[in-house]
């Protein structure tokens, strides 16, 4: 288990190093100077030059890259060009929206997908299965931003159960916060739930055909007992993979949903920073997201080992 973890850790560090290089140079190469963007059409050249040196943009790119990476190693993500506040603090503020939203959506999607997948697998080929499969087909096909708009139309504009967007703030209380995250979480969760339910069903069906399942039935377990005790646990490997991928997607991919619901989350920060050429914010946030994705994958790798003892021994 230790050697397995160590190997995964080394590949994690390597991926991060490569990612930092790619992110920095791709973003810096794109045209657009942050200082002239901030000062607009009527700015005089000396004003722009003054701001450039104030922001540290007159330093060569390589030096900026090294100081950026060096800073990140001890937790300093730099200072935003436009907001003039430390990036780490801005990200921390935004995470209070994005992280709960991702977890909420993940929770919803799992809660929907597990029963639906298991139900469909247990009733393979019967009307119940067909209904679940039809619904998930629809869920996979519908883009989540369109679904989000439909939710707003029905639940915010017509029924008035929720606001059309915005975040109440955790200082207004836990339930107020959850309430304002509900529609975005549903919009994010349903397409994910559809995918997860399909994976769950097909993984279960694969396992139901295995020899050990026949053995389980032969030793006297009912269909249901065999399904719950042996099949579900064995179906977890592909399901965990998808959940890991989905969490990364929910965290990084909420950019559009955060726009539709104007939530002050990480996605909105990146969106604003890109259009304002706030390079340091874009670089640091993308780097953090990459780190999150890689870290989640690392945890998923460890989780495989936890559910599948064979992985622990083999490597």
């Amino acid at each position: 288990m230790l050697r397995y973890s160590l190997k995964r850790l080394i590949s994690l560090v390597l991926s991060l190093a490569v990612a930092s290089l790619v992110i920095f140079f791709v973003i810096e190469i794109a045209p657009g100077d942050p200082a002239s963007f901030m000062l607009g059409l009527n700015a005089q050249p000396d004003t722009v030059a003054a701001l450039r040196s104030e922001l540290g943009l007159d330093v060569p790119k390589i030096e900026r890259y090294l100081s950026w990476v060096g800073g990140m190693l001890h937790g300093d993500f730099g200072t935003s060009y436009t907001y003039r506040t430390p990036v780490a603090q801005m990200v921390a503020d935004r995470l209070w929206v994005s992280l709960p939203l991702a977890l909420y959506a993940l929770g919803l999607s799992t809660l929907i997908a597990f029963p639906a997948g298991i139900y469909a697998a247990a009733r393979r080929g019967k009307p119940g299965d067909m209904a679940v499969m039809g619904a998930t087909q629809l869920g996979v096909a519908i883009p989540n931003f369109w679904f989000a708009m439909m939710l707003v139309l029905v639940f915010a504009i017509n029924l008035r159960w929720f606001g059309a967007g915005g975040f109440a703030g955790w200082d207004k209380g836990f339930w107020a916060g959850i309430h304002s995250l509900t529609l975005p979480a549903i919009a994010l969760a349903l397409p994910q739930a559809a995918i997860l339910a399909r994976v769950m069903r097909s993984a279960l069906l694969d396992i139901l055909g295995e020899d050990f399942m026949r053995t389980a039935r032969a030793k006297g377990l009912s269909r249901r007992q065999a399904l719950w005790r042996h099949a579900v646990r064995n179906a977890m490997i592909p399901v965990l993979t998808i959940i890991g991928l989905q969490f990364s997607f929910l965290l990084a991919g909420a950019i559009i949903i955060e726009q539709v619901f104007y939530l002050p989350g990480l996605g909105r920060l990146v969106f604003q920073a890109i259009s304002a050429r706030d390079l340091i914010v874009v670089e640091s946030v993308v780097m953090l997201l990459v780190f999150a994705v890689i870290a989640v994958n690392f945890l998923v790798d460890l989780a495989y080992a936890a559910v599948d003892p064979r992985l622990r021994q083999r490597t």
Binding site: V152, A156, G163, G165
Partner: peptide, 8 residues
Amino acid sequence: AAFAAVMA
């Protein structure tokens, strides 16, 4: 979203 916010 602007439209929805005003409508709601």
